[in-house]
C-alpha cells in the first residue's frame, strides 16, 4: 500500500514539475532548459517568505508571480529571437540557467537552505500512516491538471493555444496574435515552474543547483508526452512508478536514471511517444 502511495505521490510531484515545461514545449515547440533554474527560483521564494516571517503558504502565489514576471522578460529578450532556431534556444535557455544559478549563489551562498514545512506529520490513509504533505502533492497535481484542462478547453487563450499547437501559420493567418499566445504561454509555464519549486521545498533540500536534477526527468517526460497533458499524466504514472520500483527493489542510484532511459527507449521505438496523431 505504501508502495502504491509512493508511486502516486512521485507521479504527482513529477507532473507538477513537468507541466510548466510541457505547456511551453507544446505551444512554442521550444525546450526551456532554464526550467530547472525557475524551479530553483521558486524554491528560494519560499526561503525569502520564511526569512520575512510571513505565512509559508504565501510562498506559493509569490513563487508563481516571480516565475511569471521573470518568464515574461525571458520570452521577450531571449526566447523570441530564437523561435526559428530551436536547438539554439535550448542552449540560450541553458545559459540563462547558469546565469540564474550563479546569481542565486552570489545572493544566498552555496549552502543548503532550510524552509519551514507547509504541512507536517502523517495522516492515516487507507490503513497506513503517510506523509500528509506528499498526499497534498497529489491534490496539487490534480489542481494543476484540472486547471490546465479548464484553461485549454474553457477559455479564449486555450482555444488560441490549441490553434497554435495545430497549425501556427494558419492561426496567424486567421488573425490570432501568435506572439501574444506565445508570451502568455511562456509566462504561465515559468510561473508554474516557480510554483513547482515552492511546492518542492518540503520534499528536497534547497540549494542553487537543485533544479538541474529535476530538469532532466521533467524534460524526458515532456518529450514522451508531446503536447498532451493527459499523455503527461500517463507518462508520470508509468515512469514515476518504474522509478519507485527500481529504487525500492534494485538500487536507488539506478532509480535516478530509470525515467531517462525508459523515455529514451520509448522514443526510439515510437518517435511520437504517447502523443496520438
Amino acid at each position: 500500500m505504501t508502495l502504491l502511495l509512493d508511486i502516486a505521490t512521485t507521479a504527482a510531484v513529477l507532473f507538477i514539475v513537468a507541466s510548466g515545461l510541457l505547456a511551453i514545449f507544446g505551444v512554442l515547440k521550444i525546450i526551456n532548459f532554464a526550467h530547472g533554474a525557475w524551479l530553483t527560483v521558486g524554491a528560494y521564494c519560499s526561503v525569502l517568505i520564511a526569512h520575512w516571517g510571513l505565512n509559508p503558504w504565501l510562498s506559493l502565489p509569490f513563487a508563481f508571480l516571480v516565475g511569471a514576471a521573470l518568464g515574461a522578460l525571458t520570452e521577450r529578450l531571449i526566447v523570441k529571437p530564437l523561435y526559428r532556431r530551436p536547438l539554439d534556444a535550448i542552449l540560450a535557455t541553458w545559459g540563462l540557467g547558469i546565469v540564474i544559478g550563479q546569481l542565486i549563489t552570489l545572493w544566498f551562498g552555496r549552502d543548503v537552505q532550510m524552509t519551514p514545512n507547509l504541512m507536517s506529520g502523517t495522516v492515516g490513509f487507507l490503513g497506513v500512516d503517510y506523509s500528509a504533505y506528499r498526499l497534498f502533492a497529489v491534490v496539487a497535481a490534480l489542481a494543476v491538471g484540472i486547471g490546465f484542462t479548464f484553461l485549454l478547453d474553457g477559455t479564449r487563450l486555450g482555444l488560441s493555444a490549441r490553434a497554435v499547437i495545430m497549425n501556427e501559420s494558419l492561426a496567424r493567418a486567421l488573425g490570432i496574435d501568435t506572439g501574444n499566445v506565445r508570451l502568455l504561454t511562456f509566462v504561465i509555464g515559468t510561473g508554474l515552474a516557480g510554483l513547482a519549486g515552492a511546492l518542492l521545498t518540503p520534499l528536497t533540500s534547497v540549494d542553487p543547483n537543485m533544479g538541474v536534477a529535476w530538469l532532466i526527468g521533467a524534460f524526458m517526460l515532456v518529450m514522451v508526452a508531446g503536447s498532451s497533458f493527459g499523455a503527461l499524466a500517463v507518462a508520470c504514472l508509468l515512469f514515476g512508478g518504474a522509478q519507485v520500483l527500481v529504487s525500492t527493489f534494485l538500487n536507488p542510484v539506478l532509480g535516478g536514471v530509470t525515467i531517462a532511459v525508459l523515455c529514451a527507449l520509448v522514443l526510439r521505438l515510437n518517435p511520437k511517444g504517447f502523443a496520438r496523431g
Binding site: 531571449i78 529571437p81 530564437l82 539554439d88 542552449l91 540560450a92 545559459g95 540563462l96 547558469i98 546565469v99 550563479q102 546569481l103 549563489t105 552570489l106
Partner: peptide, 17 residues
Amino acid sequence: PFLYQLIVGALFVVMII
C-alpha cells in the same frame, strides 16, 4: 568564482542570440 561563471553564462546567451 561565481561572478566568473556568471559572466561566461551571460556572454554565452548573448552570443547565441
